[in-house]
C-alpha cells in the first residue's frame, strides 16, 4: 500500500503517494528530478546525499519519504545557480574545493548547516562538521579553507603542527 507524502521541497509544496520503502533520496531524484543529491553509498556512510530537512543537515538515504511528510526540504539546487552561486559554493569554487563533484552537493549542504549553527567556524570546527562527508578526490584542504573563509573567520589556527 502506498504512503502519502506531503512536503515542501525547495519552497514548493509537493503532494504524492509513494511506496513506503522509497527513501527521501530516491523520492527527490526519481519523483522530482532533483538529481543534485547523489547516491554515494545508500548505507548512510558517505554524505553525498545530504539535504536540509527543516533546516538541518540529514542523509536523505536514511530518511523515508513517507516519514519526512510534513517537513521542509532544501536541496543543493535551491541554494544557488551556476550563474549566481551561494557564498559557500562561490568559496568552494575559488579554493578548488572540489574535483569530480560527486560528493560536492553533500559538502555544500553540510557547510550551509554548519554556518547556520556556527557562523564563523574555525578550521577544526569545519573539519568536525565535514567528518561525515567522504571525498575521495580533493584531500579536503581546499574545501576546509573555503568554508572557513565563507564564514569570515580569520582563524589562524594551523591545520597542522
Amino acid at each position: 500500500m502506498n504512503a502519502p507524502v506531503e512536503l515542501v521541497v525547495n519552497a514548493r509544496p509537493v503532494r504524492v503517494e509513494v511506496e513506503p520503502r522509497t527513501t527521501l533520496l530516491d523520492f527527490l531524484r526519481d519523483e522530482l528530478g532533483l538529481t543534485g543529491a547523489h547516491a554515494g553509498c545508500e548505507q548512510g556512510a558517505c554524505g553525498a546525499c545530504n539535504v536540509l530537512l527543516d533546516g538541518r543537515v540529514v542523509r536523505s538515504c536514511l530518511v523515508l519519504a513517507a516519514g519526512a511528510s510534513g517537513s521542509d526540504v532544501t536541496t543543493v539546487e535551491h541554494l544557488g545557480t551556476p550563474d549566481l552561486l551561494h557564498p559557500v559554493q562561490e568559496a568552494l569554487w575559488r579554493h578548488h574545493g572540489l574535483q569530480c563533484g560527486y560528493c560536492t552537493p553533500g559538502i555544500v549542504i553540510a557547510a550551509v548547516d554548519l554556518l547556520s549553527r556556527i557562523p564563523s567556524p574555525t578550521d577544526a570546527q569545519v573539519r568536525e562538521a565535514l567528518n561525515g562527508n567522504l571525498c575521495r578526490c580533493t584531500g579536503y584542504a581546499g574545501m576546509v579553507a573555503a568554508i572557513v573563509e565563507a564564514g569570515g573567520s580569520h582563524d589562524d589556527e594551523p591545520v597542522i603542527g
Binding site: 532533483l34 539546487e77 551556476p82 572540489l98 563533484g101
Partner: peptide, 11 residues
C-alpha cells in the same frame, strides 16, 4: 565547478 556545486552535474 559551478555545475557540480549546484547539483547540475550529470552522472
Amino acid at each position: 565547478g559551478p555545475r557540480y556545486l549546484t547539483g547540475a552535474g550529470r552522472y
